[in-house]
């Protein structure tokens, strides 16, 4: 298309966007083990002014659903809540439910929601959900993951983390951890839990919430914030389930073909172990930073931003991997670079 109708206002990856998410609908993923208080957190958010116009997608309605009275009176899968919010009960396929919501929104059949909150079931590993949004073949064209949050029960959290790999996975992949029920746990228990969470996920923000009232801003955090946080934190190994996290940085501009080839190789060889890779690249020939994102075997279409977020012009890429070390990834990048030089 660009060749047919070229424009100096567009770059290698199309229109330069103000934000990486462009005009896609932001999605907040709310994870947390059974009984950690996810529903209460979501319910409280919906009642705030910031929560207006949110569509909530729930994997399955529990005993304390979003709005029992409304749900009981509705035969439809989608119900209208107060504050211009929607609630959609997903009994089968999340993709189908989200596509239906978008199509109904476009046709004016439901209120024009501006955000989706997905409340996962307690036993869910968030990886498949994140994967669903990572490619335009699935939902990546319409939605983007704004933030991933995990609710952690301060009383039972430590034991749960020890027993259940799903709970650890929820913590590891979260951008923000919300500690609930701290009023019921002793100070010592909460501190111990906080240290355990830090070990699992040193980059996530940890908030203590009382009575389910999280700062609504947590739900609104977007890619921008996340990118800034990712760019700022030091590389720290995460000791849990052989999962590691590190940052690759590069001061000089990167050739896109070389980068793409390296990532292709990495995905082909170890895609299953690339839990999340995301960051900003200073690509040769591009004026703004290029946002890239990978989840396991899937690559999100790259997006060029209109401007560098903090004035710093360099490449910074965060890797969360399983059994892939920083040195191995660095070596692969170096090898491809050397090959390219011939």
């Amino acid at each position: 298309m660009l060749q047919v109708f070229p424009s100096s206002q567009a770059g290698l990856f199309g229109r330069r966007q103000r934000h990486a998410h462009g005009a896609r609908i932001p999605v907040t993923v709310m994870t947390g083990f059974l009984g950690a208080g996810k529903t209460t957190l979501v319910k409280c958010f919906l009642q705030t002014s910031e929560g207006r116009g949110t569509a909530v997608v729930v994997n399955e309605f529990g005993a304390t659903g979003i709005d029992d009275a409304l749900l009981r009176s509705s035969a439809d899968e989608t119900v209208l809540l107060g504050n211009g919010c929607l609630c959609c009960n997903v009994r089968s396929d999340l993709q189908v439910a989200l596509r239906r919501l978008v199509s109904e929104r476009e046709r004016g059949q439901v209120p024009h929601f501006g955000r989706v909150v997905i409340e996962t079931s307690g036993l869910a590993d968030p990886s498949p959900i994140l994967r669903t949004f990572a490619t335009d073949r699935a939902l990546g064209d319409e939605f983007h993951i704004g933030t991933v949050m995990a609710a952690v029960d301060a009383v039972t959290g430590l034991a749960t983390l020890e027993q259940f790999p799903e709970a650890r996975r929820q913590v590891i992949l979260a951008d923000r951890l919300l500690l609930t029920k701290t009023d019921l746990a002793g100070a010592g228990t909460a501190d111990k839990l906080t240290r355990a969470l830090r070990r699992l996920n040193p980059r996530a923000a940890i908030d203590i919430v009382t009575h389910g009232q999280a700062d609504p801003a947590c739900f609104l955090e977007g890619q921008r914030h996340e990118m800034a946080a990712a760019a700022g934190y030091a590389a720290e190994a995460v000791h849990g389930d052989d999962i590691q996290s590190f940052v690759l940085g590069e001061d000089s501009p990167v050739a896109w073909n070389g980068f793409a080839r390296t990532m292709d190789t990495l995905i082909a060889l170890r895609g299953a172990d690339l839990l999340r890779v995301k960051g900003l690249l200073d690509v040769e020939g591009c004026s703004g930073p290029v946002v890239v994102q990978f989840v396991q075997h899937l690559a999100h279409p790259p997006v060029e931003l209109a401007a560098w977020p903090d004035g710093r012009r360099d490449s910074r890429l965060v890797f969360i991997t399983r059994n892939i070390g920083e040195s191995e990834v660095r070596a692969l990048f170096a090898a491809v670079r050397a090959l390219a030089r011939g």
Binding site: G53, T78, L80, G84, L86, E104, G108, Q109, V110, P111, H112, G114
Partner: peptide
């Protein structure tokens, strides 16, 4: 669920 004239987007 259908939005009306008094709802805003």
């Amino acid at each position: 669920l259908r939005p009306g004239a008094h709802e805003s987007v």
